[in-house]
Write a protein that binds this DNA or RNA. Sequence first.
RNA 1: GGGCAGAUGGCCGAGCGGUUAAAGGCGACAGACUGUAAAUCUGUUCUCUCACGAGUACGCAGGUUCGAACCCUGCUCUGCCCA
Length: 425
Amino acid sequence: MNLIEELRWRGMIQDIMPGTEEQLLKEQTSAYIGFDPTAESLHIGSLVPILLLVHLQKAGHKPYALVGGATGMIGDPTGKSEERNLLSEDVLQRNQDGIQKQLAKFLQFDESKPNAAVMVNNYDWFKGMSFLDFIRDTGKHITVNYMMAKDSVKKRIESENGISFTEFTYQLIQGYDFYWLYKNHNCKLQMGGSDQWGNITTGAELIRRKAGGEAFAFTCPLLKKADGGKFGKSEKGNVWLDAEKTSPYHFYQFWLNAADDDAKKWIKIFTFLPKEAIETLIQQHDENAAQRLLQKTLAKEVTLFVHGEEGLKQAIETTEKLFANQSAPAESLSEDDLEGMEGVVKIDYDGDKVKSGIDVISFLTETNIFPSRGEAKKMIQNGGISINRKKVEDASLVIASDKLLHSKYLLVQKGKKNYYLVKVG
RNA sequence: GGGCAGAUGGCCGAGCGGUUAAAGGCGACAGACUGUAAAUCUGUUCUCUCACGAGUACGCAGGUUCGAACCCUGCUCUGCCCA
């Protein structure tokens, strides 16, 4: 299978410009994807573009990861119903640094290889450019009519909030990136999420008109969950690639909780398992879905890719302790089991209060598991709180020393999946 | 500069003098069911409170009224149209 065939089979191609496949077969091709520095860390939504670059590099082509230091200052109107707030420059700087660090982990930057990955930042070529230069040299090549026809712009023009000139120019700025990379790095291909199609074609158009060159592109579908929800959000919010922001355990849990239909799609996209292996897995899963073989494999592979062996090991260990034997009493967990649970929120609590006995509600608020007594009470009434795996039925329950595991721990559950280990000292 | 329309809880969106902490939907959280799924059903969803209750809230500032998200005045912002 060639690269495009492979990606097509994996469901990673949405739109593709004619000639792209031929170009990739013809020669080693340089290709780029841009990443917006909207946050300090990338999240799993950005994993798809990263994987595109990885596949590309594996196929012998040369990947360029572009960090949008300049475009991030403008704000992409794509998919946004209203004007965004601009990020301040120091926030941008911090975000760029964080993202660069992460990208470096996934691609091969070894310069002795001809297809070593390259990191670029579009701020480098925009910072010295004057407005007049830009509108004379670049703006002149693209008509406003062309720009307005783009979906992202059209929607905003029709909406009641309108679109600022700043965001309107976004596609030109991004288009210029493609042109610049074409000119300076012979980069002929741009990839991205399908929402980027409009911006990408502007760049290709610019290369055609301004340089008389030929450019190619393809996009991958934007992921949604089977229930229509946004991909990449868990109960905890965004799922980040940074272990500090989303622990390997929570990361692993995200994939483990994928719906069946999603798991079937995602395993193709997010793992490098070969076609036959995946087909076998899907078949096995259909025979016995309750085993969740697909989810387990998916979670394992992706966690390994992002967090490495050690992160995966910890994630699985914690998962097994917390979920494998749910009917087992909490007392069966050893001290090491409790201490070793990575990703579980650990809280220290005043031992004297437990010795003299404390009501659950005060306990839950003083440990900051709940911000207010009212909320804690409501959750107990809803049956959403367990302590040491026993559901708290009565809001007036008193916690005393006899509840402690190994005389110093309390395992608190908020809902089914949120665990807190309270260490009493 | 002129005219018109609009600004309601995380979002959408009703309300148009008292019964409105504000219908309905979405989202979110929890429970039951299950496979730590999906679908479904149930509960919760301004803040504080065990509770009774209290405090804030319908763009901002004033005013009319026993009483205003709803009426009046001024201001701010947004969209549309005209110059």
